[in-house]
Computed example of a mutant assay.
Amino acid sequence: MTANAPTLMGGARRLKDLLVRGELLAAPGAPDCMTARMVERAGFGAVYMTGLGATALRLGQPDLGLMTQTEMADHARAMVRAVQIPVIADADTGYGGPLNVRRTVEEYAQAGVAALHLEDQESPKRCGQLAGVRIVPRCDAELRIAAAVAARAEIGADMIIIGRTDALQSEGIESAIDRARRYRDIGADLAFVDGVKTRSEVEGIAAGLDGPKVVSLVDGTDAAQLTRAELAEMGFSIVLYAVTTLFAAGAAIREALAHLSDAGTPDGLVGQMSYAEFCDVVDLGRFQAFAKTHETEDHP
Results as ranks from 00 to 15, higher is better:
46 A>G: 04
57 L>D: 01
64 L>H: 04
17 D>H: 13
50 T>V: 11
52 L>F: 14
275 Y>R: 01
60 G>V: 08
66 L>C: 01
231 L>S: 00
73 A>M: 03
211 G>C: 08
256 A>Q: 13
141 A>G: 06
202 V>R: 06
206 A>C: 08
253 I>R: 14
109 A>D: 04
197 K>F: 06
212 P>D: 02
295 E>R: 15
267 D>A: 12
148 A>K: 06
288 Q>R: 13
269 L>S: 04
223 A>V: 09
227 T>N: 12
67 M>A: 05
170 S>F: 00
147 A>Y: 02
42 A>W: 11
299 H>S: 12
99 L>C: 01
258 A>C: 15
99 L>I: 12
72 M>W: 14
66 L>H: 00
6 P>A: 01
199 R>M: 07
10 G>Q: 06
82 A>W: 00
247 F>I: 13
157 A>F: 01
255 E>L: 13
105 V>F: 05
228 R>T: 08
95 Y>D: 07
158 D>Q: 10
174 E>T: 11
220 G>P: 11
153 A>I: 01
137 P>W: 05
243 V>M: 15
122 E>M: 15
113 V>Q: 06
221 T>A: 05
81 R>F: 01
170 S>E: 11
292 K>Y: 14
24 L>P: 11
193 V>W: 08
96 G>Y: 09
53 G>L: 07
44 F>T: 01
73 A>K: 04
58 R>M: 11
219 D>W: 14
27 A>T: 01
73 A>V: 09
102 R>G: 11
249 A>R: 05
152 R>P: 09
230 E>I: 12
30 A>I: 12
151 A>W: 07
161 I>A: 00
7 T>P: 09
40 E>F: 08
38 M>E: 03
67 M>E: 00
232 A>D: 00
97 G>N: 14
164 R>L: 03
105 V>E: 07
267 D>G: 12
188 A>T: 04
225 Q>I: 12
137 P>I: 04
31 P>N: 05
239 V>N: 01
88 I>K: 04
220 G>R: 06
30 A>R: 10
146 A>D: 02
142 E>M: 10
5 A>S: 10
86 P>C: 00
96 G>T: 03
152 R>S: 08
173 I>C: 00
122 E>P: 14
226 L>T: 00
280 D>L: 09
8 L>H: 13
13 R>I: 15
186 I>P: 03
289 A>L: 07
254 R>L: 03
227 T>R: 06
113 V>L: 11
284 L>R: 13
299 H>T: 15
266 P>I: 08
18 L>V: 03
233 E>C: 05
64 L>V: 13
154 E>V: 10
282 V>D: 03
27 A>Q: 02
150 A>R: 05
8 L>C: 10
205 I>R: 02
15 L>Y: 05
